[in-house]
Design a protein around this nucleic acid. Structure first.
Lengths: 224, 224
DNA sequence: TTAATTCTTTAGATTTTCTTTAGAATCAAC
DNA sequence: GTTGATTCTAAAGAAAATCTAAAGAATTAA
């Protein structure tokens, strides 16, 4: 689970980072409004924990941008006890829950867990391109209501192509994003080739169209 | 919505009663452990709000009896700020959420609303899929009026599949939801496998159909 | 045109994941 | 406590996915 903590108090930020890292969360911290904005715009998080009181702006204003980015991301508000109107306002803006400062990290942990569970149950957000539909929930691909079974690697490849639609992506960057840290262990790009071709064939077979075009010497471009 | 407030402080009890009555709730108050026990045993509530600190016993001990009475009833704990262990204990016993004293009634209101929504989603009466019927009350499964005996784990598995019908659920999420906090203690997923296969066989034997399909590398999908 | 590079395709080896079975440990009812 | 049912562990075999390798095709650059 990937969590972004937006908190300007270094002591509290450190405590949360320390605790939740050991709990197996993938943690990131932003200490300013602008820093948080940038992270929200560029990365996807399962949960964003936002402190309302920030030095350079109200965390409240961050909530809509999180919602806009992905409504699968859970939003947890941290706020001082006496600012109830803030909390209610936050919930209205799309936050899912809030915890009052001061609090025990264990309590926040319990709430984050509950929030995550609730969120993962929902999220029927689907990605559409041409006559294809990708359902991230079930990690399946449909073409005109017919399911096209993809292997894990093929699915990840497809997602990376969709994210970079109409752009040329190089093999090294594909390797890095689909294979992650283990990309170096691949002696060559044979595996990339093979999975790419398999995905290409499946898409072609279902639709009769070539979605993945080769850009010789550069990489591949996915376009509809 | 019918709510039982278990609270011994008259001032707070009055405040809640006054506020929630105007909000259109059907409210009842119990100020002692014994009084609360009696009400729980004899009436059905949508939500029970229970204060942990009561003069003649811990509200904690009331939780199991509420759960036993009906697992459709939502349970909200009220507790002092410094009694975190109590709260966690309460959640383990089956409570759904908690609010720390002191609190604003608006906050409690927001939480009760959220809790109610969550609870009513869960479906109460009987769950039907194909020629199967699940009766959550008695926790039994029927196929064309013939009872199919399920073990506890198999029943929980089935329920989790039904909730996530037509979606792929991963083994880790199955482990988390069926085995709960103890999921980590399972060294591997052998147990998940075994119970899953047993359930699959029972469903298949009764109906001749395969309801649980394997999605290689992803998990399983339950579909009718 | 030719050589070098990059890409495609295929087949089989390797690894991972799933199924099945059997028996040990645990739990619950008597 | 004893018994029976349930749950968990372990291990072996099956199935699927992934990777490797190698040969042929396409593209580019000299």
């Amino acid at each position: 689970m990937k969590v972004l903590f937006i908190e300007d108090e270094p002591v509290l930020a450190d405590e949360m980072l320390g605790y939740f890292s050991t709990q197996g969360y993938l943690c990131e911290v932003a200490s300013t409004f602008s820093g948080a904005s940038e992270k929200i715009a560029n990365y996807a998080y399962d949960i964003v924990v936002v402190d309302i009181g920030l030095p350079d702006g109200s965390g409240m204003q961050l909530i809509p941008s999180v919602v806009a980015q992905s409504n699968e991301t859970g939003i947890m508000i941290l706020s001082a006890k006496h600012s109830l109107p803030d909390k209610l306002e936050g919930l209205k803006l799309g936050a899912d829950d809030y915890v009052t400062k001061p609090f025990y990290v264990e309590e926040l942990n319990a709430r984050l867990h509950a929030l995550y569970r609730r969120k993962t149950l929902k999220g029927t957000h689907q990605i559409v391109f041409d006559s294809f539909v990708v359902d991230p929930q079930s990690k399946t691909l449909f073409h005109k209501n017919k399911e096209i079974s993809l292997t894990k690697k093929e699915y990840q490849l497809l997602l990376y192509f969709i994210v970079n639609k109409e752009r040329v992506v190089s093999k090294p960057s594909i390797a890095e994003h689909v294979w992650g840290d283990y990309a170096d262990q691949l002696d060559n790009f044979d595996a990339v080739y093979v999975h790419l071709m398999n995905l290409r064939k499946k898409l072609n077979k279902a639709s009769g169209k070539d979605y993945i075009k080769t850009v010789y010497g550069m990489g591949y471009r996915f376009s509809s």
